[in-house]
Design a protein around this nucleic acid. Sequence first.
DNA 1: GTGAAAGCGCTAACAT
DNA 2: ATGTTAGCGCTTTCAC
Lengths: 368, 368
Amino acid sequence: MARQGLNQRRPSIHDVASHAGVSAATVSKVLRGVATVKSANAKRVFEAVEQLSYRIDPLASELRRSKRRIIGAIVPEFESEFFGSIVTELERLAEQRGYALVAASSRESETRETEILERMHDWRVSGVVLSPVRNEHGPAAAFMKTNGMTGVMIDRVIASDTFDTVSADSAAASAEVARALVARGHRHVLVIGLGEQAATVHARLDGFRSQAQAIAPDMRIDVILSESEVAPLRAALRSYFSKGERPTAVYSLFLKGTLVALSEFRRQAWHCPADISLVGFDDAEWMQVTFPAIAAVVQPVRRIAMQAMDLLFRRIEGDDGPPRMLLEPCKVLMRESVSPPGSDRFRDQKASNGLPPQVGAISCPLTT
Amino acid sequence: MARQGLNQRRPSIHDVASHAGVSAATVSKVLRGVATVKSANAKRVFEAVEQLSYRIDPLASELRRSKRRIIGAIVPEFESEFFGSIVTELERLAEQRGYALVAASSRESETRETEILERMHDWRVSGVVLSPVRNEHGPAAAFMKTNGMTGVMIDRVIASDTFDTVSADSAAASAEVARALVARGHRHVLVIGLGEQAATVHARLDGFRSQAQAIAPDMRIDVILSESEVAPLRAALRSYFSKGERPTAVYSLFLKGTLVALSEFRRQAWHCPADISLVGFDDAEWMQVTFPAIAAVVQPVRRIAMQAMDLLFRRIEGDDGPPRMLLEPCKVLMRESVSPPGSDRFRDQKASNGLPPQVGAISCPLTT
DNA sequence: GTGAAAGCGCTAACAT
DNA sequence: ATGTTAGCGCTTTCAC
């Protein structure tokens, strides 16, 4: 049985050289495609490479050339669809340009964020795509600036005076949510969010609030922002409801809040949307297969990744223009979890056949 | 405005040396904690390090020492909660031992899987945690073996004669699902799965089938296995239902199948669990906040990651015993989506108040 | 105790 | 057209 991990010393460029009867320099030239090599020798080099199944050690090579074809990516977590997709896209785009992507998760900690950044700096990465825990003014950004790192910030950012930023146009999306809710007659909305994600949360909240107030001055907007953890938000929400507050709709500014809201609805034995409507920022695959299907703001993940990489490589290639700030438009999907308040259209339907309502004919493509 | 990306040459060990008035060798010794350095000199070195904010270039250092403190991780995708958590855990465990984790996604392609493996081999990673697209016999495993790489395989594997494997005990979990369904009186179950994930799917299917047949020989089990894509599964499921087949329960062998099943239920205007029960392999956060809450098999993510890393580092440290095969027990959460067939307990409840049923008093902790 | 020298695997001038 | 030499940033004998 062939054993694993023998760690047989891999052939070096010198092994190839002696095998082919040339010098290491020649091998290097052949492999980097320098034209000035006699084709007979080139051939012998290729044969030796083949025989020894030699491959360049990219890290050694890049050490010598003092540049590393590595892009770092830092996200708050790997577990969510959103950041998972972001990393997937960044990986694809980096590899497209012949770079390797090294991804790490800050696990919602700014300390860890900076540590990762230090490591990436130690690795001499060519550039970093940073999705900061909090916003564009944290210690990570400061570290990048101080150390002259090349980077682009995404997602939980508004605008930086040092780095390019790319994010979803949260304010516009929130305004659209406001219009949709107002149009359906909602005049008392609870907005829930996480405090620490300052940049994004405020954009989302303000976008909603200003639009709502503009078109429905009688709108009452309650806000519950918790710290970074989910538990306090749940507690606050529970206490809010137990005080007898009954908004007709909830707008959650982030995915976990949507889950919290749903679970609190269950706890109160409220039916969505008959008793209360729900819209959440961030879409997820499951939201279109549940009953009711959950209305959501869809972030343009691929576009964000694309723009970020474009800007990053522009910087890597030497562009030193002023920092750019990109806002990419979201899509708002008004699904079944939103209906006019008190309309009870589902409840009414049910009375007729004794069954909860189902929208049978809708096809629900899972592909996103 | 301080510009980014200046790429000011970073201080090297020689800069520190001259700053401290010693040689590079001495600096190296101090930094690696060799005791035989006069403390006065050590102090000056530390000061210089501080002043220049010098940091060792780990890649250069490891080049010289011909070992790289890097662990590679390859997963089929980043987007799912399961693999997201796996990567998070692996990252944590690798860093705990002073290694960096470099994660990559094969995007369900065996070709890409091997390419990634080649790159990691080029990088001279110390070891690899591979979650193969298909199973332990694919080209990736062959590549690792041929090249004497150190590695552990997880998730979609049963047992390898070359590498350690760690996976959830799919068969046992499936048997438990079978018992639960049989106990509730189900005698016609549809099992759906994805064909290409051969290793896992078969363990899950066989575990279910043999247990069901053992305790309920009259059980009818239909099986729909599709290729790797979701679309054909959906089509097959739709055609199956449109033929008039009416199993009383569906057991989905993987998460995406659970979503497909739910969306097809909707399409048929069937109510879960009144009309049909549903259990899925793989849990997700949202499954406990929907109505009905979805019954699911919970994989022991952290344990899998832990065991994988333990085995891997044992190999890295030279263990060359025979390959081990670890099966970690799952938890089966029988939530509301499973009820006795035709029981209509929800339907009955509804008749009384004209509302769909809600389990109000259940608290649904989101923490997993 | 310390530093000069050699070298990890590779590349780039510079000779030839 | 090729090989020699020097060196990327670091570590490690091995003399002193």
